[in-house]
C-alpha cells in the first residue's frame, strides 16, 4: 500500500492534548516539517511557553526547555548565546508573548537575537479558561470581558507584528493564518523562512500565526475558522512586514 501521508519526524509520538478544532496542532506540524526539511532537527533547541502549548516540549522531537510565563525569548537568548551554531526557537501564545512577556520579546528583537519565534495569536487566554488577552478584539466576550472588550476601559488589541517590525533587529516579521489550506501553505512558507533567517545569521525572526480557540470562543471548529477570517484578519492584516532579503 502506498504511503500518502506521514507524521513529521519533527514530532514525537506523544498524542496532542489540544481541544478538537484547535489549530495549535497544525502549527506544531508546520514547525516540525520546517525543521526536518531544512535538515536541522538534530540541531534544534526549542523553548516552550506557559499557556495552551506549555506541553510543546513533549511534542517537538528535539531538545526543549520549558520557560516561565513570557520569558521564552530570554531563555532562548541564553541558549543561543551558549550554542550560536544551533537552531533555537521559541513557541509562544498571545498571553505569553503579547502580555506578560512583552519586555522579553521586544528586547530579544531589539538585540537582533538570532532566534526564531512562533507567536500563536488566538485572541484569548486558552489554558486558564478563556480570559481576555491583549489581543482580544473590541467587543469580543471573554470570562474577564463578559460584556465584550471595551476600548474605553482597556484599549484596543495589540498588533505585535506591526510593533516588532519597527525594531531594527527584527529581520523577518510576517503574519499568517491557518484558517484555510491556502493560508496553511503560506504559513508553512513563512515559518520556514523565519528559520532560514536564523540560519543566515540575520537576526530576530517572528511569525505571528492567527489561530482559533473553538472551546473558549464557544464555536464549532468550522465556525471558529470563519470567525477568524471575518473578524481577526480585518484587524490583524496578513502579510510580510519585514524580510531579510530586502536589506542589501
Amino acid at each position: 500500500m502506498a504511503i500518502v501521508y506521514e507524521k513529521s519526524k519533527g514530532l514525537t509520538d506523544t498524542p496532542f492534548h489540544y481541544c478538537p478544532g484547535c489549530t495549535h496542532g497544525i502549527i506544531h506540524k508546520l514547525v516540525a516539517e520546517s525543521l526536518v526539511e531544512l535538515g536541522v532537527l538534530g540541531e534544534a533547541i526549542g523553548v516552550a511557553p506557559v499557556g495552551c502549548s506549555v506541553l510543546a516540549y513533549e511534542y517537538f522531537n528535539c531538545d526543549m526547555q520549558e520557560a516561565a510565563h513570557g520569558r521564552a525569548p530570554a531563555v532562548a537568548t541564553g541558549i543561543k548565546r551558549v550554542h550560536p551554531d544551533k537552531v533555537v526557537f521559541a513557541y509562544q501564545g498571545d498571553g505569553d508573548l503579547a502580555s506578560i512577556g512583552t519586555a522579553e520579546v521586544v528586547h530579544a528583537a531589539h538585540r537582533g537575537e538570532k532566534i526564531t519565534t512562533i507567536f500563536v495569536n488566538n485572541a484569548i487566554y486558552g489554558m486558564t479558561g478563556g480570559q481576555m488577552a491583549p489581543t482580544t478584539l473590541v467587543g469580543q466576550r471573554s470570562t474577564t470581558s463578559p460584556f465584550g472588550r471595551d476600548e474605553a476601559h482597556c484599549g484596543k488589541p495589540i498588533r505585535i507584528a506591526e510593533m516588532l517590525a519597527t525594531i531594527d533587529g527584527a529581520k523577518f516579521v510576517e503574519r499568517v493564518a491557518v484558517n484555510s489550506p491556502a493560508n496553511v501553505r503560506k504559513a508553512k512558507k513563512a515559518i520556514k523562512r523565519a528559520f532560514e533567517c536564523q540560519l543566515a545569521g540575520k537576526g530576530f525572526a517572528i511569525v505571528e500565526v492567527l489561530s482559533t480557540c473553538p472551546t473558549n470562543w464557544g464555536f464549532t471548529p468550522v465556525k471558529a475558522l470563519e470567525w477568524l477570517k471575518d473578524n481577526m484578519i480585518p484587524y490583524y492584516p496578513l502579510g510580510n512586514f519585514r524580510d531579510f532579503e530586502e536589506e542589501k
Binding site: V47, R71, A74, T77, R81, V82, H107
Partner: peptide, 24 residues
Amino acid sequence: GVFLQAESEIAAINMVYGAGGAGA
C-alpha cells in the same frame, strides 16, 4: 565568553536558565 546586559533582572535570570540548561 559572553557578557550580556539584559533588559531586566527577570530577563537576566531567564537567560541564566537558558544557558545553564544548555550546559554552560
